[in-house]
């Protein structure tokens, strides 16, 4: 009984395993956050390993993970695409100006429909998608420098060679 309790306390019920791992990433076509930049099409990313980071200007933990994302973006190992989830354009733009823009492209998902396609239930969430368009990793919660170093970089390198 005590063992069960111990295991139970260690589990994180907020982290729900995604059924999308190993599956094809949903196709999304969305306007960009910045006006007049045309559409973002996930199909254009085929052949590249890329990172999709789901964020919102109203999301506190997104601010916490921001330095790690800027670092990931600076290393330029893979395109980092932002999915701006359930947000207002003005707020998003101001947020990017304020804290810096780590994204190669920011797709604007104002009503959260693309978020539903990706099974997003809390922001921030981060996906790594391989050259064939398969989802290889999903992280829920803020990305840290350690996660970038220990999880994202090795995985991106491995997928790049594969």
């Amino acid at each position: 009984m005590l063992v069960l309790l111990g295991v139970g306390l260690r589990l994180k019920p907020q982290e729900i395993p995604s059924p999308l791992i190993g599956k094809r990433a949903p196709e999304i076509t969305l306007p960009q956050v910045e006006d007049g930049r045309g559409l973002f099409r996930s199909s254009d990313m085929r052949g590249k390993v890329w990172v999709l980071n789901v964020w919102a200007s109203w999301c506190g933990p997104c601010r916490a993970e921001h330095p790690a994302l800027l670092e990931l973006s600076r290393l330029a190992v893979a395109p980092v695409v932002g999915l701006n989830y359930n947000d207002q354009r003005g707020d998003s733009l101001q947020w990017l100006r304020e804290v810096g823009n780590p994204y190669n492209v920011s797709a604007f998902d104002g009503d959260g429909k693309a978020g539903i396609e990706f099974g997003v239930y809390g922001v921030p969430e981060t996906f790594v998608i391989d050259k064939q368009g398969l989802i290889r990793l999903k992280l829920t919660g803020p990305v840290t420098q350690e996660i970038v170093k220990d999880k994202l970089l090795p995985l991106i390198r491995e997928l790049d060679h594969g």
């Binding site: 019920p13 907020q14 729900i16 359930n86 009503d111 959260g112 429909k113 978020g115 539903i116 239930y121 809390g122």
Partner: peptide
């Protein structure tokens, strides 16, 4: 999924509203 012990029928969280709309 954000309030876990509620169904989306009972919840007023944004995600629950979005899923209901869908």
């Amino acid at each position: 999924l954000v309030c876990q012990n509620q169904s989306i029928a009972d919840s007023h969280a944004q995600l629950a509203l979005d899923l209901k709309r869908e």
